[in-house]
Simulated scan of single mutants.
Amino acid sequence: MTTLDNPFVETPERAQLRSAVAGLAAKYGQEYFRQCAREGRKTDELWQEAGKLGFIGVNLPEEYGGGGAGMYELAIVMEEIAASGTGLLMLVVSPAICGNVIARFGTDEQKQRWLPGLADGSITMAFGITEPDAGSNSHNITTTARRDGADWLLSGQKVYISGVDQAQAVLIVARTEDAKTGKLKPALFIVPTDAENFSYTMIDMELQNPEKQFQLFLDDVRLPADALVGDEDAALSQLFAGLNPERIMAAASAVGMGRFALDKAVSYVKERTVWKTPIGAHQAIAHPLAQGKIELEMAKLMMQKAATMYDAGDDWGAAEPANMAKYAAAEAAVKIVDQAVHSMGGNGLTSEYGIAPMLSLVRIARVAPVSREMILNFVAQASLGLPKSY
């Protein structure tokens, strides 16, 4: 049986990609990531090199400068970078959400304008859906798009939008005025960050992360007709083209962070000796780490299933495994980081070993881009057929 016949074994091309990305990420690593965060600068060097090597746009069409692969490959990129102790949050947003949406639903002109830059990393695009008074209830968004002649005028606010300060544009989820029926029929607009009447402020976060969060303000931002991506009444189909990749990439990031913490802990408990025996020989230390390895691998398999289904064009079918993968990876990663600190004792809280900063960073995986409770709601209703609770 070849790897092509076995979906549980990566193809040689995917294995080579994984090795190449791991090699790149190892050149930078956690200390580079933390130094960028401390100095208030971005991980530009890593982003630019990853772009030149074709990693950022590996999922985008070849005719627009991408790698012609899919979400499976982009998840490999995300996982391996995170497993090296660094991170590129905008991988979730720019090529995964925005790139996929434009590649699937954009006009030829939009694809030519945006995709080559998104593929090589020279253009970064943020994604704006969350609002102060909507949160997980995307059906309640109030950012409104109305026509003014051939143009559009957008008004509203967005919150917890990643990387706006390093983006050239934001893909904004709005609703047309005649769609205010309580049922979400989103319209997607590309809004340049230098557009008139568009502004943003940074949200102070207790996280050691070079990539920041922002609140956006749109006060009758005027956009040309071709700022609209896809249909004016896109319903949920266009959002799934972006939200399923978002969950797949969140899972990949959590799997990578879990691997990083697990590797640190395993290396430590192999060497740390008390009463003439490495502490890793004791079941109280070994079993929780082994359990963490099992849970990470199961989450990774679900992530790969979701990516495979998405790449096959099954947006609706990919929703279940994408949400499950995000849930499972987040839970596994949070537990592993906590256990790594516990296994290392006081050293787990020192700057030297680099685990302590992950206590807060990995917690994001449970909260964003969708909370674990909303995933459980989705599975209860969509998978189990239980009545809706809200």
Rank of each mutant, 00 (worst) to 15 (best):
M1W: 06
F8T: 09
V9F: 03
L17W: 09
L24R: 04
Q30Y: 10
Y32I: 10
E39F: 02
R41S: 09
D44A: 13
L46S: 02
L53M: 12
F55E: 03
I56M: 08
G57E: 08
Y64K: 06
G65S: 05
G65P: 03
A69F: 07
Y72M: 07
L74K: 01
V77Q: 00
V77G: 01
E79Y: 06
E80G: 01
S84V: 02
L88M: 12
N100C: 10
A103V: 04
A103F: 07
D108S: 14
L115T: 02
I123G: 00
A126M: 06
I129L: 14
T130E: 05
E131K: 09
D133Q: 07
G135E: 12
N140R: 10
R146L: 02
R146S: 04
G149D: 04
A150L: 04
V164C: 05
Q168E: 08
V173D: 00
R175K: 15
E177Y: 02
D178P: 00
K180Q: 15
K185R: 11
A195Q: 02
L207Q: 14
F214L: 06
L216F: 03
P224T: 08
G230I: 02
A234I: 03
G242H: 03
P245D: 01
A250T: 11
A252T: 05
V255D: 00
V255M: 01
R259F: 00
K264C: 00
A265C: 01
V266P: 09
S267E: 15
E271L: 13
T273C: 06
T277S: 07
L289W: 08
L296R: 02
E297A: 10
K300Q: 11
M303L: 13
G313A: 02
D314I: 05
W316D: 12
A318L: 10
N323F: 12
A330E: 03
A332Y: 07
Q339N: 15
N347Q: 13
G348C: 12
L349S: 11
S351I: 10
S351C: 09
E352Q: 15
I364V: 13
R366I: 03
A368K: 14
R372K: 13
R372G: 12
M374Q: 14
L376K: 15
L376Q: 14
N377I: 11
N377H: 15
A380N: 15
A380Q: 15
A382N: 15
P387E: 15
K388S: 15
Y390E: 14
